[in-house]
């Protein structure tokens, strides 16, 4: 039996994509009442974790199980791997209890990436709903780090309530930039909320991007993405420039277990990020 020591984890992981790699939790951050981020220190030779914005990892809590979680950190900071998720299931709830110094298993990165290269020279509109902001954050880091390459950048973000807004500090920082448009709306609010109330799609008509020269990236619940696509189309964005991130029951992460099949694609392998035009016909098929 081969024992997987830290020094050769990388090598084994490449050949045995089903074997998880133990990573150390560097910091556990509570984002909202039910969402949290884990900052992991990659193990192995290089202490670096290379990924493209939009990719996900299979995270394994010892003894509890494994779930796909998108990477939410800065792709340029390879020594700091960040995931953000909501504590809803057993695994994510157990993950929420992890503290600095604990160990978490990582397999990945898997899946396709947001089209940051294709978007160069164009306006970029990012539409996020709920926890869907997490997989888009690496894109924003990338866009802002390479600000000169892009036209207008707009983030349209819908959350449930003001308390559910993710990454508040980061958003504040971005809000103060003049080269970054940000619109946030919540589904319901009480008290002192001075921002927008209403669904995220209502932000689309008024955000200042050029529909003919833009790339749109959407991440959120499927129904929100469906409505968003309609609204973007209404503004004249062509569907091959709209990208969506899909979600299904991913188990292996490498397209070999069949659980995340969506028609002719496996989401873990062919997605999770798709050009909308590629899956438009699958998008509204029931129980596919």
């Amino acid at each position: 039996m081969a024992t997987m020591s830290d020094s050769k984890t990388n090598e084994i992981n490449l050949t045995e994509p089903m074997i998880t790699r133990p990573f150390r939790v560097n910091r556990a951050i509570k984002d909202t009442h039910d969402t949290f981020s884990l900052e992991l220190t990659p193990s192995g030779n290089s202490n670096k974790f290379d990924f493209a914005p939009g990719q996900f990892n299979m995270l394994y809590v010892f003894g509890v199980g494994e779930v796909p979680i998108s990477i939410s950190g800065d792709p340029a900071k390879q020594s700091k791997l960040v995931h953000t998720t909501r504590a809803v299931g057993n695994v994510t709830k157990a993950m929420n209890k992890l503290k600095a110094g604990d160990t978490l298993g990582v397999r990945g990165p898997f899946g396709t990436a947001w089209p940051v290269k294709e978007a160069e020279g164009e306006d970029v509109v990012l539409v996020a709903g709920g926890i869907g902001l997490a997989p888009l954050r690496p894109v924003i880091y990338h866009l802002l780090a390479n600000r000169g390459q892009y036209g207008k950048i707009a983030l349209l973000y819908g959350a449930r309530t003001p308390e559910d807004i993710l990454f508040q500090k980061t958003l504040e920082k971005w809000r103060s930039r003049f080269d970054f448009e940000m619109y946030i709306t919540v589904d319901r609010a009480t008290g002192n909320w001075k921002g927008n109330v209403g669904v995220v799609t209502q932000l689309i008509p008024r955000s200042p991007f050029d529909p003919l020269n833009c790339v749109a990236m959407i991440c959120g619940p499927e129904i929100m993405m469906r409505f968003t696509v309609l609204e973007l189309e209404k503004r004249g964005v062509t569907t091959n420039k709209i990208y969506v991130s899909m979600e299904r029951n991913m188990k292996c992460g490498i397209g070999l277990c069949g659980h995340c099949q969506l028609g002719r694609t496996f989401i873990c392998k062919d997605g999770a990020v798709y050009p909308y035009s590629q899956i438009a016909d699958l998008f509204t098929k029931r129980e596919l």
Partner: peptide, 15 residues
Amino acid sequence: EATRLQLMDIYGDHV
């Protein structure tokens, strides 16, 4: 339509 979406509480636990 927007109201429908709001009512569905799409960012909640269950859609």
